[in-house]
Amino acid sequence: MTTLIVLLLFAAGTAWVLGKCVREWLTSLRSVFFGERAEGRCVRSYGTEGSDGFTRMHYVYGFTTADGRSVEFEEPTMLMQEGRKVTVRYRAEDPERTATVMGLRTLSPLLGGLFGILVSSAFFLVSLVVLWMYVTRVWPKH
């Protein structure tokens, strides 16, 4: 019974992660296709060292919305120089949470979202297969 509970918790956890990845990716896609357009800049970049010893770069972008608000947001793009102009797409109702950068050098957020969906989908499917194997082989014996 403990094994079943652990498998159910694992399946639920991977389903939650998959749902979160899909929601974030769809938010980015909605901003890209249906959002407002603004000119922005890479305001600053900085690195943080992870527990694995690798430095992760963070890029902060700034832009002004159509109604005159200044907004800054962070997005994990690849190799962006400070001060470089970028095109920003955002949803007018919530620019802080929906802003995303556009362009060939800035495809990494969308591609990273797809990678997250792919990995979390794989873990979710594995958890379902293991759960199904457990239920069909162990459960009838009880």
Rank of each mutant, 00 (worst) to 15 (best):
R69K: 14
K20C: 11
K141A: 09
S51A: 14
L9Q: 08
L4M: 14
V60Y: 02
V138P: 00
W139L: 10
D94A: 15
R37N: 02
T136A: 10
L107N: 05
V135T: 11
I5L: 10
V138R: 06
F124H: 05
E24K: 10
T2Q: 07
L26G: 02
I117C: 01
S108K: 09
E39P: 03
C42M: 06
M78W: 12
V130A: 04
Y46N: 05
E36P: 06
K141G: 03
S45P: 03
V17S: 02
F73M: 12
A66N: 09
S51N: 06
R56G: 07
A12D: 09
Y134D: 07
G116E: 03
V6M: 07
V43I: 09
M57H: 13
L107T: 09
R84A: 12
E75W: 00
A122W: 14
S51Q: 09
M80P: 01
A15I: 00
G116L: 00
G53N: 05
T48M: 05
M133K: 13
T14Q: 09
P95I: 12
S51Y: 07
F10V: 14
T106H: 14
R89C: 10
L29E: 08
V130S: 00
S28L: 11
E39Q: 13
R137E: 07
D52Y: 07
F124E: 01
T48E: 15
S31M: 04
T87C: 05
L26H: 04
L118P: 08
L8I: 04
V129D: 00
L110M: 15
R44A: 15
M102P: 06
F33M: 08
M102K: 07
Y90G: 06
G68I: 01
V129I: 02
R91V: 07
S28D: 08
A12I: 12
V6F: 10
S70E: 14
G103M: 06
E93P: 02
F115M: 06
R91I: 12
V43S: 02
K85D: 11
G19A: 07
S127P: 01
G35D: 11
E49F: 13
P95R: 14
R69M: 09
V86P: 03
W16C: 06
F63A: 08
A12T: 11
K85A: 13
M78N: 13
K20V: 15
V6I: 14
T55K: 11
F34Y: 09
H58Q: 11
T27L: 15
T64V: 15
T98K: 04
G13A: 14
E82H: 04
T2S: 08
Y59C: 00
W25I: 01
S45A: 12
S120T: 12
Y90A: 11
M78R: 15
